[in-house]
Design a protein around this nucleic acid. Structure first.
Lengths: 161, 161
DNA sequence: GGCTAGACGCGACTGAGTCGCATGATTTCA
DNA sequence: TGAAATCATGCGACTCAGTCGCGTCTAGCC
């Protein structure tokens, strides 16, 4: 795990550490990414940013996301493509978590497990230097599962919505 | 793990089981996806398909990929976005594996681990019905790691190519 | 062999993402 | 502190993957 941002540092501080130039636009974007209640895609981030800084341009958002990706300060997710081919971004927290995406209701949960850590360690022991680990699970959340289960139980969700 | 295609069945046979209509175009696409030496994206699949059936149309490829996704007969991967935002497809083999993507040389390796299975089982025990599990690891493969390590060892790959 | 639902090819369309350039802001160093 | 150099931004044109509706064709079924 080389170059992991430290646990409680902000995206802004991390960006400074990486020698990135801090502009008003970047400051705003960092804030939005870090403060987001849910996972943001590029278009959503642009929309939010333009509410507070109407002059900010699409290209700036894409460039900033690209920069953060290259510096490994954010993770790019696709969350099982629940909403088409969009990509979602989140600030790296330092503690690796994975995502549980409910294919029925669309809810995304974050989770951690010692087994996930062990798995990464195992891969490192086998000689592969793990830098990013992205695990996305698609299926049915407990609520949708309870709702869907008939008397015989265990019905699979319809594959063709 | 509901609705997993059985271990040694072909995409064609699975498609039949799902009641899909078998056309010459689909037969070709199934063959290409299953026989591919490396992971294919939509554009690559279209190119290969047109070599053998020049009249096949882009829209048919996208429609077929979409169909297979909805029936969970193929997996969609992004392989750590090594090559931009492309998505890659692979036939489900029944045995779940994960991908190790080298961020230096771009090689993709497939791997399995009992820990991966245990992790999925743990998630199921917690009430989440796992249908698809996608794990992608980005980092340095053993070869690139050996090549990059200087006398002091453990240099991280440059984040800005 | 004939019927019908569903698949195909076509081509126009959409919209996310990229690029080069001129201008403006940030950082550095005297 | 102020000037110079460097880098980021906004702009607008552009590209190209992916989608859509339509008319035609074909697989699957009787």
């Amino acid at each position: 795990m080389a170059n992991q941002p430290s646990e409680h540092r902000s995206l802004l501080a991390d960006a400074r550490l990486h020698g990135l130039r801090i502009t008003a636009q970047r400051r705003l974007l960092f804030e939005l990414i870090q403060g987001a209640q849910e996972h943001l895609d590029a278009a959503g981030l642009l929309r939010l940013a333009q509410q507070r800084l109407p002059s900010i341009h699409r290209a700036t958002v894409y460039r900033t996301l690209d920069l953060l990706k290259r510096h490994r300060l954010i993770d790019e997710l696709d969350l099982m493509h629940l909403n088409g081919e969009k990509h979602y971004y989140e600030a790296k927290t330092g503690s690796d978590h994975f995502h549980l995406a409910c294919l029925i209701c669309g809810r995304i949960e974050e989770s951690t497990s010692p087994l996930f850590e062990q798995l990464k360690e195992e891969i490192v022991r086998q000689g592969f230097d793990v830098e990013v680990a992205r695990l996305e699970i698609g299926g049915r959340c407990p609520a949708c599962r309870a709702r869907a289960v008939g008397p015989e139980g265990g019905e699979k969700p319809s594959p063709c919505p």
